[in-house]
Design a protein around this nucleic acid. Sequence first.
DNA 1: CGATCCATTTAAAACGTTTTCATCATACGA
DNA 2: TCGTATGATGAAAACGTTTTAAATGGATCG
Lengths: 356, 356
Amino acid sequence: MAARSKPVSSATGPANSRGKPTLRTIADITGLAVTTVSRALANAPQISIETRNRVRQVALDIGYSPDRAAQRLKTGRTNVIAVLLEPHEEILGYGTSVMAGIAKALQGTPYHLIVMPNFLNSANIDAINYIIRNSMADGLIFSRTEPLDPRVMLLSENGFPFVTHGRTELATAHPFVDYDNFTFACEATRQLIAKGRRRLALISGPAGYTFAGHIQHGFMTAVREAGCAYEILSDIDLDSPAGAIRDRIRRRYAEKDSPDGFICGGEVCALATITGMTDCGLTLGLEYDIVAKQTSQLLSAIQPRVGTIYEDLTATGEHMGRILLRRIAGSTEFNELQLLLKPDLPFETQPVSAAD
Amino acid sequence: MAARSKPVSSATGPANSRGKPTLRTIADITGLAVTTVSRALANAPQISIETRNRVRQVALDIGYSPDRAAQRLKTGRTNVIAVLLEPHEEILGYGTSVMAGIAKALQGTPYHLIVMPNFLNSANIDAINYIIRNSMADGLIFSRTEPLDPRVMLLSENGFPFVTHGRTELATAHPFVDYDNFTFACEATRQLIAKGRRRLALISGPAGYTFAGHIQHGFMTAVREAGCAYEILSDIDLDSPAGAIRDRIRRRYAEKDSPDGFICGGEVCALATITGMTDCGLTLGLEYDIVAKQTSQLLSAIQPRVGTIYEDLTATGEHMGRILLRRIAGSTEFNELQLLLKPDLPFETQPVSAAD
DNA sequence: CGATCCATTTAAAACGTTTTCATCATACGA
DNA sequence: TCGTATGATGAAAACGTTTTAAATGGATCG
């Protein structure tokens, strides 16, 4: 209990050269050793309950908070989760929704979220190399996977914990959360067919991404099964600026016969399609219909109603966050690290997933 | 030149307990002292040119990159710029555009950008306290200032470098970049008046924000100067979901006489206004017109044309980044730390600003 | 030839933690 | 009474940098 010999400085107030209180400050005030203070704050079992309380109280009083840099240096852990954010993902809040979900999953953990914007022309793979080399984070989340995604390969090789939004076709399994875009596209197509539409068109994600392939596959499946005419508008995609989509539609169907049903992978895309068709003198709900994937409220302002199938991006983010924490904690059980979310369809029940 | 006595270990390969090469590894290989290696990599003038080159070469060969945690601990600098991101800012890529600009400004500097999402219900001020206490960054950027913004006060008191997007009415000056929303609103209103519109309505930003006040002020100024009828739709704003805006418009003007001109602070807002008015059987360009602030390409898909006045958010971000770097470097010259951007108007020339 | 200076290089301390290994009472069983 | 387990605390080393102060060995100079 009694302090042994120790160079007690002023024994009060912040004693740090930079002005911030440190473990040393608390040690001086309480007359304990730095070791003990560190342990008390870490809730180590060996520290007596009184000491622990006293230390915590002093820490609170002087407004102590641990130096993250020192902790990082010593432990090698950063307590940071990084999200790779790409420009196009922001359109209509993709990034926001996902990040909100991740933040939710991280709440109450020592981890916090940083977002690494990937704007400058640097390839995506550079950003990942940068994060690994500089130990910027303990785990990584990113989206828009490709079937043979080099990012996934790089991270897997390095044993760096990560979760993707989207599957790959790589041989080595990895943690992911994905939306069943095949089923989405099937169902969207069937809804149009049910409305009597027989000449269908697809505007999907940019070629090369896994999810775009799934959408196309689902579309083809439903279209063949009904035996109706179709086209895939492969020279425009979700990421195109609204104006470009509109122009493309207008020019394409100004003279030529147009489809009477569109499947759109996104909301801005649907909107632009409508205005392009209007340019051609064609009216939504009359000459044609649209079914689009919905991730925000934008289309609720559009009239007449566009058919929508919902993808919950915040839930996706939350799942990704939780899975990443599991991965960092050491789990390699892929049945709790992989999750395929089903579209909310009227007549199917949402299958219970592996993750809670 | 000759290595004195030194415990040369294996003198090759990474010697770090964690597997990564450190300054020590390079020192062992070259036979130099750690100090010298550190200086060589920092381009210190006192190191001979040959030594410098040799060290750099070895560093490159073994793939050395400095431990950020150790650098942070020693220097107290983080080399990080933080951006506070709020959910609503993502709508139509506000966040993206600004961040792309900041990233551009940071290119080639040792700084890199992290984004702290501010989702969870925690008040904004908590996020800032957190950043200061934990030394998460060397500087901070955030937006949507209030006239008496508590965040600005807190940061100013703590001497923490920051730049805001938006002015305040606080007594103490601080670095900012702002768009001249007063002029924007004046001009937008005048454009409607020039089209012969005489019953005008404003849908502006959420009350409480500085920029919303400026818009309202500009609107009132132009409206009074022309002596026309007006209303301010204060129960809906930019941040409202599109569906809510549409409903609000529809219900309000279903029976009652509607305005013949709208000033909209944002694009989704303009879109929702159009559909709401369509619900009432009123046609854009015929019974009414709209002038909106444009920050993306969304409205380019809308027909007939909505009047727009452009705000360049990427440029804003770039200016904020540059100003923050100046501030961190120690500048207190407010004439190079504050910047008011003028809307791009047809008949006025853009005033050359203080910042490049 | 000794003092002085310059250009390089180095040793060692420090940044604030965590962790390994002791230390020290006290209590306990024999 | 003596070893020994036990429960609480402490000293010191380490993480990988940067920085202060010092050393080294010529070259220059009076």
